[in-house]
Simulated assay, not measured.
Amino acid sequence: MTEQAPGGLDVTRPNVARMYDYYLGGKNHFPPDRAAAERIIELSRGHVREAVRENRAFLGRAVRYLAAECGIRGFLDLGAGLPTQGNVHEIALEEAPDAFVTYVDNDAVVAAHGRALLEGDPRVRFLQGDLRRPEEIVTAASATGLDLDRPVAVLLVSCLHFVPDEEGPESVVAAYRDLLPPGSHVVISHVCSDLVPEEMARAGDVYGNANAPFEARPGAQIARFFDGFDLVEPGLVPLNEWRPGDGALPPRGGFLPVLGGVARRP
């Protein structure tokens, strides 16, 4: 029998959102989350923490680029996870006070936590929903205030590697593409297995005990998520190479096995 805390919070099984929070140095995690995260840290020789920091930095640069340079005012952040520092709405609203951000996560506790933290700001919403159901998500987001008469940005940052091949992640991305107006953008980051396939397979075994599977993919497969979009410069690259700021340092391990890109729907 699964032990649950008040409100239906399962504290006995590792949760990918809470593991991510642990990597970032947050406080929203429990012993099983920490144990699984420490195993991933061991397998990666500590580089997973660098990867998640680079992921947050990439997200921030992408949002800033879209708001400041592309005129995007609507942001749909899928698989958003627990609110942490450098959230999408903080960055978007800094660049464009008229921006509107809708967060989506399938975890009821994460969604409730997000709504509580964001309560009172009419420019931000947090929905519970499954990113694998694009029509439902887009309809619900539109009902909360996301303006689909103008180009928007869909953020699929560090979440597609938790959607297994048999659930059709490429079709999911294509469905979002077809539901959005021309000029919309997609932002994707995804763990890549090309350089460290054995380590990624072992990481998948650890996540097999968590609330979502983990599936690192070859770069060629990740590139297919952008079919039907026009990649903006510099294309699909390691996260630290996507429009880095001045003084950016190379990864400690010599490479970063996470790819990211931003693309526009024609």
Rank of each mutant, 00 (worst) to 15 (best):
A153N: 03
V154N: 01
V154H: 00
V154K: 00
V154D: 08
L155F: 07
L156R: 02
L156A: 05
V157N: 12
S158L: 00
S158P: 00
S158T: 10
C159E: 11
C159H: 09
C159S: 10
C159Y: 10
C159V: 15
C159Q: 10
L160F: 07
L160C: 06
H161F: 13
H161L: 14
F162L: 12
V163F: 01
V163I: 13
V163Q: 01
P164G: 07
P164Y: 07
D165R: 05
D165M: 06
D165V: 05
E166W: 05
E166L: 00
E167I: 00
E167P: 00
E167K: 01
G168W: 09
G168F: 06
G168D: 07
P169A: 06
E170F: 02
S171N: 03
V172H: 02
V172M: 06
V173D: 05
A174Y: 02
A174T: 04
A175T: 05
A175G: 00
Y176L: 10
Y176C: 04
R177K: 00
R177N: 00
R177I: 02
D178V: 04
D178S: 14
L179E: 12
L179P: 10
L180A: 08
L180I: 07
L180N: 08
P181K: 08
P181M: 08
P182H: 09
G183Q: 10
G183S: 08
G183V: 09
S184F: 06
H185Y: 12
V187W: 14
V187F: 13
V187A: 07
I188R: 06
I188K: 02
S189Q: 00
H190S: 11
H190G: 01
V191N: 13
V191S: 08
V191G: 11
V191K: 12
C192N: 04
S193E: 03
S193P: 01
S193F: 03
S193W: 00
L195I: 15
L195D: 15
V196Q: 09
V196A: 10
P197C: 07
E198L: 12
A201I: 04
A201T: 05
A201L: 06
A201W: 10
A201E: 14
R202C: 02
R202L: 07
R202D: 04
R202M: 00
A203E: 11
A203M: 13
G204D: 12
G204R: 12
V206I: 15
V206K: 05
Y207P: 03
Y207G: 01
Y207T: 03
G208L: 06
G208E: 08
P213Y: 14
P213D: 12
P213V: 03
P213H: 15
F214Y: 15
F214P: 08
F214M: 12
A216E: 10
A216N: 09
R217E: 11
R217W: 12
R217Q: 14
P218C: 06
G219E: 15
G219L: 07
A220M: 07
A220D: 14
A220L: 09
A220S: 13
A220W: 14
A220G: 04
Q221F: 01
I222F: 04
A223Q: 15
A223M: 13
A223I: 13
A223V: 13
R224Q: 14
R224L: 05
F225P: 01
F226L: 13
F226A: 15
F226Q: 15
D227M: 05
D227R: 15
G228M: 06
G228S: 05
F229C: 04
F229V: 02
F229H: 00
D230M: 10
D230V: 15
D230Y: 10
D230R: 14
